[in-house]
Design a protein around this nucleic acid. Sequence first.
DNA 1: TGCATCAATAATAGCGCTACGATTCTATTT
DNA 2: AAATAGAATCGTAGCGCTATTATTGATGCA
Lengths: 348, 348
Amino acid sequence: MNTGRSVKPTRKRRKMQRVTMMDVAARAQTSPSTVSLYLRKPDAVSASASEAIAKAIDALNYVPNLMAGGLAAASSRAVSIIVPSVRNAFFAETVATMQAELGKERLQVLLGHTEYSEREEENLVRMALSWAPAAIVLTGLAHSSATRKLLRGSSVPVVEIWELGSEPIEMAVGFHHEQVGRSAAAHLVQRNRRNLVFLGARLQEDKRATHRAEGFVEEARKTLGVTAEIIQHPAPSSAEVGAMLLGETMRKFPQVDGIACSNDHVALGVIFECQRLGIDIPGQLSVVGFGDLSFSAASNPSLTTIRPPGDLIGTEAARLILERIAHGSERTPTVIDTRFTLLHRQSS
Amino acid sequence: MNTGRSVKPTRKRRKMQRVTMMDVAARAQTSPSTVSLYLRKPDAVSASASEAIAKAIDALNYVPNLMAGGLAAASSRAVSIIVPSVRNAFFAETVATMQAELGKERLQVLLGHTEYSEREEENLVRMALSWAPAAIVLTGLAHSSATRKLLRGSSVPVVEIWELGSEPIEMAVGFHHEQVGRSAAAHLVQRNRRNLVFLGARLQEDKRATHRAEGFVEEARKTLGVTAEIIQHPAPSSAEVGAMLLGETMRKFPQVDGIACSNDHVALGVIFECQRLGIDIPGQLSVVGFGDLSFSAASNPSLTTIRPPGDLIGTEAARLILERIAHGSERTPTVIDTRFTLLHRQSS
DNA sequence: TGCATCAATAATAGCGCTACGATTCTATTT
DNA sequence: AAATAGAATCGTAGCGCTATTATTGATGCA
């Protein structure tokens, strides 16, 4: 092989991207290193060089190749966000906020949704890691042990959102769902309700909703000394499910006078079904939702609900990620409790 | 060049990923090339080698580095999806479907949202291109000329979703919004309505909603010979806006007997406000929505609406992308009309 | 038996960029 | 004027993988 440079004239070549950093450097009469530095830490480059480089980038319409950059730096400008479902308005809100916040720092969002499956989450984490992301965001605190191992084994910053309670992998931003349930129960009792029911959709998969239900029942029975039951349906939350659950409730517990719902969709269904059945809200029945969705203030009656700060969770999570990247520090356990707000309206 | 090992002992080093393809190859007693081939085209590798490689990957818990792969192949396993807003249930549906479909082929979704700004879309496209994505998905057909130029200049497959009408950049999957408006008008007239109003939220930004409004008015006046007006509000769609718009309508056009809404959120507000004002639906007023959102079938009265096939748009777009990638062909203009469905329920 | 033919595997040259160290070039100080 | 410390810039070795060519081993056929 290659004995005295003989038999190898045209050996290889490759398709290539149009403009590279070298082209920019050539045009700006400087070196690729300086161009790279200018792109990553503009302050470290002199004004004259900066100007020339900026001009060259503009003239050549240069688009950096993030794959190359990520490979060289062993970390990419992508943040992987894994949520149960983007169809869910709560998570959509947080994803949207995070995208806006991270976008300011030129970080891209890699989205994944698990459909409430831990196995799927594990796959998504594995895929995410193969992008060497700048950070990984997971929803909730319940993950498979393999997922934990994958994440602990990597050095990628991890933020868990929308839930507090048990030990986070690294950072967590959210609130205690069990407290949400307690607040709802306390509110209903304060409104002189004594026979409470929690209506839940998809409680098997949605562990956070389950925590709300449990907190609700616990607070009602133990602390407040009133009756409380859970009535649930395996289908995803919807007004339709809410209507069904109300029907079932009236059959099983006709004496009910206070209802908390796993979310506002369910509560909306309750409101409509009560209209159809001629049940007066809040005269005969008080209703509390969860979510403060876009219709909740405008419904008839307007819906008392508990507002989770989906946007705040997004901004705080983004902030944690950016700080962690900037200070490139070690894993530093951080927990941010965003709290939640009970909005008292007509339905209770 | 190692001249008698003198002046360059430890020159360089780099942080590295834990397990690389070379490690896998070593353990499987084969070459990296074969491992790579196994990962990309399993059929081209013998059964025995496949087995050994699979075992090694498993044992080492190997995660491929997509940055390196993407760099070498000049194309990544990411698909960039750019929508106006993920908070919007319509786009969330399509994004979710696409993620599921593309995920099967191990393609990751890079998400961006424009908040209905063409300038922002341009930025996002620029960022997307620096990932050398396998495809780019845009919402609608209206883009800045710079955006078009960027996309035309690249060889990345482009799919425009949720709208048909003018010339697509390459592929398009969606339906004609103007026809949606026409269908709504036709339906209302068929229900013996003669004084129609279209209630629109955020029509300035949401061009597709504008097309629906225009189709509605055009069909009503020109073809059906009834009166039709547009009443709008600049805020994003919500039940609250719907309630406000209904109030305004009753003031300005008390004779109104048929209403079409830019979407179901607005229609929901109309229903609630009618309840409050004592307006009978559908006796005094027929209401048609758009979207068939989760509450629309369960409302009181249930809402007549036009269902856009958000999931079908997602599956078809994903299919086009996968085919285009598989056959690695040239830009081939393709337009898929997914149609839409009018669901006649109690409100009309 | 010799020689194409084809399938399977291996060797190697980058992909475009960043990190790291080395090398200038400027102010300062002595 | 020489010495020194910063600031700015540059040179280069990879990052881990894929595409391409090269090589090897089987097989078929005259």
